[in-house]
């Protein structure tokens, strides 16, 4: 699956890192970093991250 984050919307709250910690992380400066190509076995976690993001900034596609 493909993951992308709309940087104009993302406000680096890091809630996504709770749902899918191996895909989303905050760097030393507190800025979101994430993997764009993610194994389908993590689909449920990534969908949850997209669901709970306060800014609704995460887009998941097949």
């Amino acid at each position: 699956m493909n993951v992308s984050v709309d940087r104009a919307k993302c406000d680096n709250h890091g809630q996504c890192t709770f749902s899918a910690p191996t895909v989303f992380r905050l760097n030393e400066q507190g800025i979101l970093e994430y993997d764009e190509k993610v194994d389908d076995s993590l689909r449920a976690d990534v969908d949850e991250a997209a669901d709970v993001c306060p800014m609704q900034a995460i887009i998941v596609t097949d």
């Binding site: 809630q15 709770f18 749902s19 949850e48 669901d51 709970v52 609704q56």
Partner: peptide, 13 residues
């Protein structure tokens, strides 16, 4: 984080 992770989905949009 553990508690928040368990609560978050029920409060999703």
């Amino acid at each position: 984080h553990r508690i928040r992770r368990l609560l978050n989905p029920a409060f999703s949009f």
